[in-house]
Simulated assay, not measured.
Amino acid sequence: MAISAQAREILDIAVAASEAKLGINPVALEVTDRMPFTDVFLVVSAESPRQVNAIANEIVDELIKHGHKRAKMEGKDEASWILVDCRDVIVHVMLDEKREFYALERLWADAPEVPIEVTPR
């Protein structure tokens, strides 16, 4: 099943926002058929807690600028893994070591990857 146009728009905004704050290796997975409450998981790495916070905040700010409702965030205090709930897209901004340890891409290996545009550095 393809993701909705709204999910695509939110995903594109989130990817661009994460790139603006130098997010690392974004991967989007379509979970529409597996999760009744969202369409896409976006996983992005960061090198420091400060960068995790910066990426999550940039995503929320950009969504608001584009007319979307304020996303909910969890994990801001620890800033090693912040979950940004954008309804149709759930963004996991994680420190590299957390991402390796929890391996969400392997956990959701049966979920098809959603193509995203990433600017090469």
Results as ranks from 00 to 15, higher is better:
M1Y: 10
A2R: 14
I3P: 11
L11I: 02
I13S: 03
A14Y: 00
S18A: 15
E19F: 07
G23C: 06
G23Y: 01
N25P: 08
P26S: 09
P26L: 09
L29A: 11
E30Y: 01
T32W: 12
F37N: 06
F37L: 14
D39W: 00
V40A: 04
V43F: 12
S48N: 14
Q51Y: 08
Q51F: 03
V52A: 07
A54F: 13
A54C: 13
I55W: 02
N57E: 14
N57S: 07
D61H: 07
L63C: 04
I64M: 06
I64H: 04
K65Q: 11
K65I: 04
H68Y: 15
R70F: 07
A71L: 13
K72F: 13
K76M: 10
E78T: 13
D85T: 08
R87K: 13
D88R: 06
V89W: 03
H92L: 03
E97D: 12
F101M: 12
F101I: 06
A103M: 06
E105V: 02
L107C: 01
W108N: 04
D110V: 08
A111W: 02
A111K: 01
P112E: 02
P112Q: 02
P115I: 08
E117P: 03
T119K: 14
P120V: 04
R121D: 05
